[in-house]
Computed example of a mutant assay.
Amino acid sequence: MNTTPANIHGTAISVDGIGLLFLGPSGSGKSSLAFDCLAEARLGHQPGALIADDRVFILPDRNRVIARCPDAIRGLIELRYSGIVSVDHVTEAEIHFAVLPVPSNEVERLPPNDEQAEIAPGVRLPAIRVPLWSRFPLSLIFARIQSLRENG
């Protein structure tokens, strides 16, 4: 395993064993969308935990991608305009999908087929686009994962 992690800007969570890495520029809604997914998981009695918010260490490991949290921010997530809160967390977890928040002014309704996101140099994951206004973002993500698995 490569021992030098890539330090990227993003938010990573794990829900029911599925690792999700939320990507986008500062202020794009990554943390809020990830928090909404964790809240939805909790309401649905699914295990969910924060891996890291704002900074994520990415370590490619054979055919897997591992996300870790810097020690200084472990268990903390920033909820814009509300503050920084402590949530259930894990030290590291495998990441399976990149989640791309979609702003309300996006004009393309359908994503490209087999869209991939480069999360670190040479490291790509299947991408899932999620509208920021989605009422049930985790359900949308899981529906898209199911579709990708059935068609891939």
Rank of each mutant, 00 (worst) to 15 (best):
R62M: 00
I58T: 03
Q116M: 14
R144M: 09
L43M: 01
L79V: 13
R68D: 04
K30S: 02
R144Q: 13
L140F: 15
A143M: 10
G29K: 06
V123R: 06
L76S: 10
L125C: 10
G24P: 07
I8R: 01
S26Q: 10
L100A: 09
R62L: 06
L148I: 06
R68K: 11
V15Q: 07
V87S: 08
S14E: 12
A98W: 14
R144S: 03
L140D: 12
L110N: 08
A34V: 01
I145P: 02
A52N: 02
Q146M: 05
L59M: 12
R55C: 00
A41F: 13
V123N: 03
H45E: 08
R109D: 03
A117Q: 10
A127I: 04
E108D: 13
L76I: 10
E115L: 14
V107I: 12
R55D: 02
A67M: 13
S32M: 14
T11K: 07
E108L: 14
G24H: 06
P70D: 15
Y81L: 13
H9Y: 03
A72W: 11
V56T: 06
R129V: 01
R55N: 06
L33R: 01
F97T: 04
S147P: 00
V102N: 12
P47H: 11
H96S: 15
I18P: 00
D61N: 10
E118L: 06
L125T: 10
R68M: 07
D54P: 02
N63E: 12
I66W: 12
D61V: 09
G48W: 05
L33E: 02
A67K: 05
E150V: 09
A41Y: 11
P101W: 08
N2P: 00
V85R: 15
I128M: 08
L140P: 07
P101N: 07
I77A: 14
T3G: 00
D114A: 05
D53C: 10
N7D: 09
D53M: 09
S31V: 03
H96R: 05
I141Q: 01
Y81F: 15
S147H: 15
A12D: 07
I119L: 07
R74A: 09
L20F: 13
E115M: 11
N2K: 03
R124D: 03
Q146G: 03
S86T: 15
E94L: 08
G17T: 02
L148T: 01
I66G: 03
Y81V: 04
S14M: 07
S32P: 00
P25W: 15
R109M: 11
L100G: 00
I66T: 06
A52L: 05
V107R: 13
G10S: 02
P5A: 03
L38V: 04
Q146W: 09
Q46H: 09
P101C: 09
P112W: 11
V130F: 02
G83N: 15
G24L: 13
F136W: 12
M1K: 11
Q46L: 15
G17S: 08
L76R: 14
A12C: 10
L132T: 06
R144N: 08
G44V: 05
T91M: 02
S32W: 01
M1H: 13
N63A: 04
P111R: 04
E108T: 13
D53R: 05
D61M: 11
P5Y: 00
I8W: 03
S104Y: 12
W133P: 02
A41E: 09
L38C: 08
L33Y: 05
R109E: 15
L76D: 06
P121H: 13
E150K: 09
V56L: 07
V87I: 14
I73E: 13
